[in-house]
Computed example of a mutant assay.
Amino acid sequence: MMHVDWDWIKQRPHFIAEELSHFFDVQVFCRTYPSSLLIKASHKTKTNNVNVHHFYTLPFCFKKGIYWINKFYLKVYFWYFLKKYNPEFLWIPFPTLYEYIPKKKYKIVYDCMDDYTEFGFDKYYNERIKKCEEKLINDSLVIFTSSENLYKKLNEKYYAKIKDKILVVRNAFDGLVLNNEIEEKKRDTKFKIGYVGTVSSWIDFELLERTLEHFKEIEYHFIGPVYPEVSELTLNERIIFHGPVEHEKLYSFVKDYDCMIMPFKLSDLIFSVDPVKLYEYINYNKPIISIFYDEINRFSPYVNFYSDESELMEVLKNLIIQNFPKKYSNEERIEFLEKNTWSNRVSQILEHLM
Results as ranks from 00 to 15, higher is better:
Met1Trp: 05
Asp5Trp: 13
Gln11Gly: 08
Glu18Leu: 08
Leu20Met: 10
Arg31Asn: 11
Thr32Lys: 15
Leu38Asp: 04
Leu38Lys: 15
Asn49Glu: 03
Val50Gly: 01
Val52Lys: 15
His54Arg: 15
Phe55Leu: 02
Thr57Cys: 06
Lys75Val: 13
Lys83Ile: 00
Phe89Tyr: 15
Trp91Asp: 03
Pro93His: 08
Pro93Ser: 07
Phe94Leu: 10
Leu97Cys: 02
Lys104Val: 02
Lys104Gly: 00
Lys105His: 09
Tyr106Ala: 00
Tyr106His: 09
Tyr110Pro: 08
Glu118Asn: 12
Phe121Ile: 03
Asn126Ser: 07
Arg128His: 08
Lys131Gln: 13
Ile137Trp: 09
Asn138His: 14
Asp139Asn: 14
Leu141Met: 10
Phe144Glu: 03
Glu148Val: 04
Asn149Gln: 14
Leu150Asp: 09
Ala160Glu: 14
Lys163Pro: 10
Asp164Leu: 01
Asp174Arg: 07
Leu176His: 12
Glu184Val: 11
Lys185Glu: 10
Lys186Pro: 11
Ser200Pro: 07
Ser200Gln: 13
Trp202Val: 11
Ile203Lys: 10
Leu208Gln: 02
Leu208Asn: 04
Arg210Tyr: 07
Glu213Asp: 11
His214Ser: 08
Lys216Tyr: 05
His221Phe: 08
Ile223Asn: 10
Ile223Lys: 11
Gly224Val: 02
Tyr227Ser: 05
Glu229Trp: 12
Glu232Trp: 05
Leu233Ile: 05
Asn236Val: 05
Glu237Phe: 06
Gly243His: 10
Glu246Ser: 14
Glu248Lys: 15
Tyr251Gln: 09
Val254Thr: 14
Lys255Leu: 05
Asp256Arg: 14
Met260Pro: 13
Leu266Gln: 06
Ser267Cys: 05
Ser267Arg: 11
Ile270Ser: 07
Ser272Gly: 12
Pro275Ile: 01
Lys277Pro: 12
Lys277Cys: 05
Ile282Trp: 13
Lys286Leu: 09
Lys286Phe: 05
Pro287Asn: 09
Ile291Val: 12
Asp294Glu: 15
Arg298Leu: 01
Phe299Asp: 06
Pro301Arg: 06
Pro301Lys: 03
Asn304Phe: 12
Ser307Trp: 05
Ser307Arg: 14
Ser307Ile: 04
Leu312Asp: 04
Glu314His: 09
Leu316Lys: 12
Lys317Ser: 06
Ile321Gln: 05
Gln322Phe: 00
Asn323Phe: 03
Phe324Gly: 00
Phe324Lys: 03
Pro325Thr: 01
Lys326Trp: 02
Lys326Leu: 00
Tyr328Asn: 04
Glu331Leu: 02
Arg333Met: 08
Phe336Leu: 00
Leu337Gln: 04
Lys339Gly: 00
Asn340Gly: 01
Thr341Ser: 13
Trp342Leu: 01
Trp342Asn: 06
Ser347Gly: 03
His352Asn: 13
